[in-house]
Simulated assay, not measured.
Amino acid sequence: MVRCSNNLVGILNFIVFLLSIPILAGGIWLSQNGSTECEGFLDKPVIALGVFLMVVAIVGLIGSCCRVTWLLWTYLFVMFLLILLVFSITVFAFVVTNKGAGEKVSGRGYKEYRLGDYSNWLQKRVNSDKNWNKIRSCLADSKVCSKLEDKLVGVPVKNFYNEHLTALQSGCCKPSEQCQFTYVSATNWTKTAGTQPNPDCQSWDNAPNKLCFDCQSCKAGLLDNVKSAWKKVAVVNIIFLVFLIIVYSVGCCALRNNKRDGSYGYGYKP
């Protein structure tokens, strides 16, 4: 009788091996051709993920198809650690992103965002100068504000106030409502005299490469994006976790078959 579990582990790991190739190639391409902080920030994790998946898939393939028991033991140990890691990351993502939301502004089509509404862990990440300098560069390279300016060029203030801005556009491309600045264009505002209660009002600058990129509201807008993205990733992780558990279970059956074959000699004798 053909060992279904061994064959299934082999097939699943062959698929993982094929998937690791474009991931690894993409990481190498980013490292060779990336010209911005955003691209440079991504290449190393992508390459590491591609190499890891490729190595694990090869170990699983050899261990199951060639009946190499010690390799299959290694494969199952790594899979067990991976299951624990994915489970921990999923729980952590839900815990960290359970706080924070935009506040609806009366008479406006957009929300505004406050950094203090989000979890302390996320706040510490964006309040780090080293981290924020990289993120700020990414925001500038993405031209999120210049695209907004191009989209709303020449529109009156009433139309701007009715616009449904994204969290980044609201937090980084315009001053807070508390500043009471005078509208000129989507990313151009005239400062009013007097002391403003919100420190972001002092950070605002009409220069295209400055705007509100150093504002607390911009950091909050980014965290709102992170929160939404992490929740989606957490759902995907749950699906991936179920897949890993199934593969791990099938791998345990394959290991049992290898042991049985070893105890009976070459081949399976029922």
Rank of each mutant, 00 (worst) to 15 (best):
R125C: 00
I135A: 09
V235F: 07
K104Y: 10
V153E: 10
V235M: 06
I62D: 08
P156S: 03
I23S: 03
W189A: 00
A229L: 12
L148R: 06
R125F: 03
L222S: 02
S249W: 05
T166K: 08
S176I: 13
C4I: 13
I245V: 15
K227V: 03
N159S: 00
N131R: 06
N258T: 10
R3F: 03
S217R: 09
C173R: 00
N33M: 09
R256L: 13
Q178F: 07
I83H: 08
C218W: 13
A93K: 08
Q123P: 04
N198C: 07
S106L: 12
L61Q: 09
L122D: 11
I89A: 09
C201Q: 15
N206F: 10
L115E: 03
L8T: 15
V126E: 02
C218E: 08
Y183T: 07
C66D: 06
S20F: 10
R3I: 09
V157E: 02
W73Y: 11
L84Q: 02
W29R: 14
Y266Q: 14
F17I: 01
F77C: 04
R256D: 13
D214H: 10
S31W: 15
D129A: 15
N198L: 05
S185N: 12
R67V: 10
C252S: 10
V95Y: 08
P156F: 09
N6C: 02
W73V: 05
G60T: 07
E39R: 04
F160H: 12
